[in-house]
Design a protein around this nucleic acid. Structure first.
Length: 697
DNA sequence: GAGCACTGC
């Protein structure tokens, strides 16, 4: 190890990668060797041909020597499948230890585990396993490599604070910076202090590597040879992508997207197109325009098949984007951000990036989350254009000028700094973190967001006025895989004897689309919705839907008939079962109130009393929050939207689009706010609230 | 009065 001024990138010898590769990545044109011509080779030889193979010994040397290794892994390097195997091969799976590999998403865990098991010729769940919510597939005695989600790792830390079963933790895709990843990073730093033998490998994009380095490096001297962290860049295997910018900024990126698609179609050689837009409505607009344009297009051009892709589409419609189109047809996929990292569509050669994304923002003063269209980061733009270089050289069209690109933020604000922190803070308390302010965050959340979260947890009875976890309720709430407000509803239901009903409601609020979003059949979907609606509001409507589903043998046919999301309802069933298990674990009674809607609504109030609103006498359908008079409206998806507006309501959350809308609303009686939640509203003057604040923090 | 980025436990 040299002790020069800048040993940020390790250069052990001529075969090791250096900064030149990092430079190359910046220019976004990475030229590499032949693509996957290895299919017929024996597995070992295939593995040896992956780009990461030539770094094998260097990486293993780093892992031995440094407590933390940061790998800058490009797409197609093979790191996620090979790295854990290298570690296993040199003995990190010995003496009963396991190697953990975390992923932000469930599907990635399952598919990676299966691929690695395949390569090793073993059955999944034996030597190689995975652990995700609702699906445990590993063996306590046999498993050596365990793929798990970031969230699952945090749950494991709750039961084993120093992760004694593991010899190495690989945090893959750390640059995505989800709240779970950030928490895991902070916790790992803590664990490393107590376990000098533990090794951590962080796989990240170039941009964040230096920050991760500084975060984990415990060397406080100038002597670089005492660093505890090392950065290893590993080249990938992708094709060059030509970046095209607009000369002048465009007025309407949706129209510009349509025009660009048509231009590519008419002037560029065959190859599928992927266009990024921000939401379903934009996608639908572009879809209609394109279908119209292709209708009167000259037959000298190829045919064109345009497909929408976003999360609220029924699964059947989503699958269409993965189907191959005939040779004479060009596939055009109009997608939301779902195609940036979550799904990969094969055969894309042209990418269009509108330069915007819908992102969750959090207003801590009003405790309101809202979806806003924001400019993408440079990192996102690079990720999007990279989607064009997976099969052969491609082209990316950025619908903004090059100078606008330069002005974009380098990377997106981490989730930790722009969302409701109450679930995260509750978890941290359950993990035994005494001082929330002193916790080593990789990105410190705004003080105001933390304060808001602590106050909510205090109001829910999860934390006391010394900011300590309350026994037993706080512990129970932390254990539940739910937002603490929903957890509180369940605990209230235990007291009031309606857990059966509340388990259903809590589970049902966790699924995004209860009804299918079938294009062209919106009217029929609306009609079906009305069949289940309860005058008391959305929560009891969700209960009605689940009961109907259950009484009709949970059949797919029933769901199809009423435009219900079958997969979603099955998911609700699993969530319900999991929540039921948690209650059983705590030996809490599971009872039914036999359809007493009043009792159920009272329990709901006990969970989301903070979100209470009263109909305002001015204007139609205007509500004001009880807490601070913030103006709100009933969301069009609510069953109460078409009804005579009720006087008093509680709601799950606010979505801000043109206006601020309440979602999942239940009608309440105003007395409940005093009788059931007096601890919150009785002392609700501003002066007293600020006194309370001073006390908590 | 008229709307729904994406994950995860």
């Amino acid at each position: 190890m040299s002790s020069s001024n800048k040993p940020r990138f390790w250069k052990p010898g001529t075969s090791a990668p250096g900064e030149d590769i990092v430079e190359e990545r910046k220019s976004e044109t990475v030229v590499t060797s032949s693509y996957n011509s290895n299919a017929s080779l024996p597995i070992l030889q295939q593995r040896e041909r992956l780009p990461i193979y030539k770094y094998r010994n260097n990486i293993l040397y780093c892992v031995e020597k440094f407590q933390t290794t940061i790998i800058i892994g490009e797409t197609g390097s093979g790191k996620s499948t090979q790295l854990p195997q290298y570690l296993l091969e040199i003995g990190y799976g010995k003496h009963g230890y396991m190697i953990a590999v975390t992923q932000p998403r469930r599907v990635a865990c399952v598919s990676l585990a299966n691929r690695v098991a395949d390569e090793r010729g073993s059955m999944i769940g034996r030597e190689i396993g995975y652990r995700i919510r609702f699906d445990d597939c590993w063996d306590e005695n046999e498993t050596k490599i365990k793929f798990l989600t970031d969230g699952m790792l945090i749950r494991e830390i709750m039961n084993d604070p120093i992760l004694r079963q593991y010899s190495v933790i690989v945090l893959d895709e750390a640059h995505e910076r989800s709240i779970q990843t950030d928490m895991a990073l902070g916790l790992m730093k803590k664990i490393l202090k107590k376990r000098k033998d533990l090794r951590i490998i962080i796989s990240s994009a170039t941009l964040d590597a230096q920050m991760f380095f500084d975060f984990f490096n415990t060397n406080e001297t100038e002597d670089k040879s005492k660093d505890t962290v090392v950065i290893m860049p590993v080249e990938g295997r992708s094709f060059p992508v030509d970046i095209h910018y607009l000369v002048d900024p465009c007025q309407n990126y949706v129209k510009e997207t349509v025009n660009t698609i048509l231009k590519i179609h008419k002037t560029e050689p065959p190859g599928d197109i992927l266009a990024f837009l921000t939401g379903a409505d934009e996608i639908e607009f572009a879809l209609t325009e394109l279908i119209e344009a292709t209708r009167d297009m000259s037959s000298k051009y190829q045919k064109m098949k345009v497909l929408p892709m976003h999360a609220s589409l029924p699964a059947g419609h989503q699958l269409k984007v993965f189907q191959k189109t005939p040779h004479d047809t060009r596939k055009v996929v109009l997608a939301t951000n779902i195609a940036e990292a979550s799904i990969t569509i094969n055969g894309i050669v042209y990418v269009i990036d509108c330069g915007f994304v819908k992102m969750m923002a959090y207003n801590p003063e009003a405790a309101i989350s809202s979806l806003v269209i924001t400019k993408v980061s440079q990192a996102s733009a690079v990720q999007r254009s990279g989607r064009a270089g997976r099969v052969r050289a491609g082209k990316a069209y950025r619908l903004y000028t090059e100078s606008d690109f330069e002005k974009l933020p380098a990377s997106q604000t981490p989730e930790m700094q722009r969302c409701d922190l109450s679930p995260a803070i509750l978890q941290m308390k359950a993990l035994g973190i005494v001082n929330l302010v002193k916790f080593d965050y990789i990105a410190k959340p705004p003080a105001q967001n933390m304060l808001q979260a602590v106050e909510l947890l205090y109001a829910l009875g999860a934390l006391n006025n010394k900011c300590q976890l309350v026994e037993p309720d706080g512990v129970r709430l932390a254990e539940m895989p739910l937002h603490p407000t929903f957890g509180k509803m369940l605990l209230a239901a235990v007291e009031m004897g309606c857990t059966e009903e509340m388990l259903t409601i809590a589970a049902m609020t966790q699924i995004q689309n209860v009804f299918l979003n079938v294009p062209n059949e919106k009217h029929k979907v609306e009609k079906a919705k009305r069949l289940f609606s309860a005058v008391e509001g959305d929560h009891l409507t969700l209960l009605n839907i689940f009961i109907a589903f259950d009484e009709n043998n949970r059949s797919q046919k029933f769901c199809r008939q009423y435009y219900l999301n079958y997969k979603g309802l099955l998911r609700a069933l699993s969530i319900r079962q999991q929540l039921r298990n948690v209650l059983t674990k705590f030996k809490l009674p599971i009872e039914s109130c036999n359809g007493n809607g009043r009792t159920v609504r009272q329990c709901i109030t006990k969970g989301i009393f903070v979100n209470a609103a009263k109909l305002h006498h001015t204007g139609i359908g205007v509500y004001k929050t009880v807490k601070d008079g913030h103006e709100l409206h009933i969301h069009p998806t609510s069953v109460l939207y078409r009804e005579v507006p009720p006087q008093w309501v509680v709601f799950n959350e606010v979505v801000k689009t043109n206006k601020e809308y309440m979602q999942d609303i239940t009608v309440i009686e105003p007395e409940w706010l005093h009788t059931l939640t007096s601890h919150y509203y009785q002392f609700g003057t501003n002066r007293e609230i600020s006194e309370k604040r001073a006390k908590i923090c």
